[in-house]
Design a protein around this nucleic acid. Structure first.
Lengths: 275, 275
DNA sequence: CGCTGTCTTGAGTCGGATCAAGATTAGTGG
DNA sequence: CCACTAATCTTGATCCGACTCAAGACAGCG
């Protein structure tokens, strides 16, 4: 659990390792192309759950992701109270919305995955009540508020799809509240894993064996679930011992999805939308 | 804590007492006029935090509240999965968004107070992932989706104000998540009280001495805070013993607001909006 | 090979849950 | 106005899930 109030949210200070981290990153995601770059535009994939796009629209959305930049783990995309200049689109990697308490405790409010837009809600009229940090190195492209507004006007289907995905984001927030309020440690963690599996599948980020990358350490897991690192560790061990999951090297396999779903009362309804 | 899965959410089954309850209600809110009816339109009051309305707009909004109907405590305004026909505007009374677990446990996701609109988000494209129930008898007026859409087009200021209040509702949801994830029982309950004081003040529902009506029993408080009824009871007693609050007859006095704010780390920022 | 994150493990404690009665209070009916 | 009833609030005893503190074990990287 991160107890430092400072900027670095992805780990207890990246220290002087900024350069080192970049090296590691390039090495990790190489050779040459960023691994995810070869895949379809995650924004398109995500929104096509809700609407059908024309070739025109797909091209316009692709243009958004062309300009993605590498950013290093732990960096803040927006900070509580500071009005953002631009909207960030996650092209690859993961980020989280979070809030800090005065004593340094952190609650993660949402996980953002490829295809998610960050600051849509903070237009001309509002400032953020929370921060957003990268959980691992990431590819981020920036979109100006004006540019996005233009696209929404020009492409009503895109506009509708975005609205729907905002609805789902809010529904997810509600489900997380239920998670923290009513479920125990095993269920909380299990529920998160079930949710991530559905969301990552929707953007084509499951591996062939159904597993997925989870660039997250146990301290982050603790900040998501409102538990301590120690208890997360012990709970993961129980989940492993019961043959429900495998988790190592930042990759998660859900061994018995039906059992896990039942254990934590997961129902993916809140991730869907009518029509 | 409500452990029955059925419809009645305000108490463990209103039993055969429906008629009796209506009688009680009339007696309580009489003579003649509903108590709140004399006050300003709560929707207007609420939205005027964000924008200035013309006389025209105020009239249009007043027309929305003219048709309010009495509804009895415990009734569901919408039920998870059933697409609502209309939008409900709370004119007086309180309601809550909630979700039920298979075993009957309930998590309350939001409190709705006068001036709050219920099903705005469930337009043509979505169905509710949760239910909404009345916590006490209430005055509710119904607005059709078309009617509301019309007003938003006709009165852009109204449209903007509604969008802003939706932003605040989402920010509140995030703050509740922080509450459940990181704060202890005293802080959770205290934080809720602080929040309510700010929200009720904004719609002119504080009494002269700063107290306010809280039509909520300890079981409901438990479902909001993710605690048990017993523990809520004991925690309230501690809050009383420390001279922080007084709570009886469904009326809450915060005796030492600054102290309570400090105890639970309350910051009303999330209830506000820029500009 | 040594650092630094990260993950594990153990022992002890505590906040909050559970179970089971009572005590109040408010609404109902006579 | 009083007795009856059902909700609601209180209290006590006990238990357990999760927290705390403190070390140690790995693993990846320089």
């Amino acid at each position: 659990m991160i107890r430092c109030i400072g900027a670095s949210a992805g780990g207890t200070a990246s220290g002087g390792g900024a350069l080192g981290q970049r090296d590691r990153h390039l090495q990790y995601d190489s050779p040459g192309q960023p691994r995810i770059g070869a895949q379809a535009n995650p924004l398109t994939t995500k929104l096509e759950q809700f609407v059908c796009f024309t070739a025109d629209e797909i091209l316009a959305l692709d243009r958004l992701t062309n300009t993605a930049k590498f950013l290093l783990a732990g960096q803040d995309l927006i900070r509580e109270g500071e009005r953002p200049e631009q909207i960030s689109l996650i092209v690859s990697g993961m980020a989280c919305r979070y809030k800090l308490l005065a004593d340094g405790r952190r609650q993660i409010l949402a996980l953002l995955i490829p295809g998610d837009l960050c600051e849509v809600e903070f237009g001309r009229f509002s400032w953020p009540d929370h921060s957003i940090a990268l959980l691992g190195d990431a590819l981020i492209s920036s979109v100006s508020f004006a540019q996005l507004a233009g696209l929404r006007v020009q492409y009503p289907r895109f506009d509708r799809a975005l609205s729907l995905s905002e609805l789902i984001e809010t529904a997810t927030l509600r489900e997380w509240l239920l998670n923290l309020g009513q479920r125990n440690a095993m269920q909380r963690i299990g529920h998160l894993f079930c949710e991530l599996r559905v969301r990552l599948r929707a953007i084509g980020h499951l591996h062939d064996d159904g597993s997925f990358d989870l660039p997250i350490n146990q301290a982050v897991l603790a900040d998501i679930t409102g538990l301590t690192t120690v208890h997360v560790n012990r709970t993961l061990q129980r989940l492993r011992a019961e043959g429900l999951i495998e988790l190592k090297q930042r990759r998660l396999v859900i061994r018995q999805p039906e059992k896990l779903v039942e254990l934590c009362g997961f129902d993916d309804n809140y991730l869907r939308v009518a029509r």
